[in-house]
């Protein structure tokens, strides 16, 4: 890795962080209740606290921005891993059925708890903390099914992995739909909005629930990032280097499943971030995963924070799920990638 690559990486990351802060600033000051920079700063620094400002910033906007940033980070990182392990630039956690598995598990949880989980309040903190666990189990079940079908002759067949993922994804999608149809009318609406990816009911408890997953698994992934460079070679060459291919792939994929499940459990299924962020990151910093992973995480953060801002303001005071905004931005990008990869 050359020095110029490293400089480019640090420049890019600093630039992205500046943009994230800027997006966060716009997000926190704008909305149905406009605030000045001074209001925000004084509130955050606890100088002459004001109840209204406190409520807007600490209860509504700040948790929402933090969740948007965390979800973007998680999806960007996990997307890079999924693309790296499958050696397929068009793979994405959504395509692999992990989102759908985690989603279905959480819809089941919502059904069992009669929607208590999505209603904010501290009385049901247990069910909120359980959500990522449930999501992980769902994501894991999806992953195990996909693995056992894609696992052939002692190795992971990447093409089968993607094809099975697509099938499992529709299967779990149908399951979620079926369960949500069994719900009461109000619950159904909530579940539908949640499934299309939304974070407007964010609160600090969600952050507490998802943070440990990211804090543990993202460093695990980052530590293994250099291996993703090697995993871009074809199988025989990787094995010849003495890399335990299946074990390393499994650690990376399982960690990503954990990250994705934590994200899905708080935000529903936001697709396309896991697809777009790694591509943008590679354009920015090249092909080394030590650089691509953090960059992709930062790009994911930026994309979700901006998308969420659009989601809350475009049809204000009505909100649209952030997942839909991301999809509207993402579909043309996906098509662009397809056309470009053909050329």
């Amino acid at each position: 890795m050359h020095k110029q690559d490293r400089n480019r990486f640090f420049m890019t990351i600093s630039g992205l962080f500046a943009l994230i802060c800027f997006a966060g600033y716009i997000h926190i000051t704008n909305g149905t209740f406009d605030m000045s920079v001074k209001d925000v700063v004084t509130t955050l620094l606890r100088m002459n606290p004001n109840h209204d400002f406190d409520l807007v910033i600490f209860e509504f906007r700040l948790p929402r921005i933090v969740i948007a940033a965390l979800v973007g980070l998680g999806l960007g990182v996990a997307g890079t891993v999924v693309q790296g392990v499958t050696r397929n630039g068009l793979a994405d956690p959504g395509i692999l059925g992990i989102n759908a598995g985690a989603g279905a598990a959480i819809v089941i949880l919502m059904f069992l708890f009669q929607m208590q989980v999505t209603v904010s309040g501290t009385s049901n903190w247990l069910s909120i903390l359980i959500m990522p666990v449930f999501g992980f189990v769902g994501g894991l079940v999806a992953a195990i099914i996909i693995y056992s079908i894609a696992w052939r002759n002692g190795k992971l067949d990447t093409e089968r992995l993607i094809l099975t993922g697509i099938a499992i994804s529709s299967g779990f999608g149908a399951l979620s739909m079926y369960i949500s149809l069994k719900m009461r009318e109000g619950d159904f609406e909530m579940a539908t909005v949640w499934m299309s990816g939304s974070i407007y009911n964010a609160n600090w408890l969600f952050i507490v629930a998802m943070l440990p997953w990211l804090l543990i698994l993202v460093p695990v992934i980052y530590r293994k990032a250099y291996l993703l460079d090697y995993l871009q070679l074809e199988e025989a060459s990787i094995k010849s280097l003495g890399i335990r291919v299946e074990k390393e792939k499994s650690i990376l994929l399982l960690s990503s499943i954990g990250v994705i499940s934590a994200c899905v459990s708080v935000s529903g299924s936001i697709s396309f971030i896991g697809l777009m962020a790694p591509h943008i990151a590679r354009q920015l910093v090249g092909i080394h995963h030590r650089y691509v992973i953090p960059t992709s995480g930062a790009v994911g953060m930026l994309l979700v924070v901006i998308s969420d801002y659009i989601a809350k303001t475009v049809f204000a005071p009505a909100e649209i799920p952030v997942g839909i905004v991301v999809a509207i931005l993402g579909v043309p990008y996906f098509l662009y990638l397809l056309v470009k990869s053909k050329a």
Partner: peptide, 27 residues
């Protein structure tokens, strides 16, 4: 013998090796 230990004694050049096209030769 662990696969890594074998890799210090034995290298294999496969029939159709592949690498990312943007990768530098020295890397």
């Amino acid at each position: 013998i662990s696969t890594k230990a074998i890799a210090k004694q034995l290298a294999l050049l496969s029939q159709n090796p592949e690498a990312p096209l943007q990768l530098k030769v020295e890397e």
